[in-house]
Amino acid sequence: MTDVIDAISGLDTAQSVALRGHRPDVVSSAQASYEALLPQSLDADPVPGFALPTRLLVAARSARLEHSPAALAHYSERLSAHPEQSALLAFVESGPDRGAGLLASRRERAILRHVELLVARPAATTASDLDALTAAGLTPAEIVVLSQIVAFVSFQVRIAHGLTVLKGTL
């Protein structure tokens, strides 16, 4: 599979080797994290209930809030491969509290609200924010998957941005 950080940083193979080649274990473990949280199929994932389109919505919305157009395009494109979930693409743009988001289910709005909090103000989270997710029907495993995806995208877009800047110095 294509390395997703190379893809969203716009690195070709030679540039990737030049910039990232000294830390092959970072390259492989970052890709393994992506494949664990956002695989092509959930068949091998033991956590039920958090469907792949929902995971891609969380990743795409996080990328948008992180101001990363390349990561946003990557996750939106993957989300568009689930046409039965076309409503979710609108939520990537709207978030939970305006436009299409106002028509989202209670569960979807709770998820989207948590994404906003975790991207922009993680230190403001309280126990009652997790209570709100539980009240909207999320299990502990789903809360962990949601939190891991937002936090992982925060990591991924920062490495990709750093690489994009470094690419300009090659």
Partner: peptide, 11 residues
């Protein structure tokens, strides 16, 4: 609760 991502995160 999501062991695959914990394991990858440790790596």
């Amino acid at each position: 609760w999501h062991p695959a991502s914990l394991h990858a995160r440790t790596l």
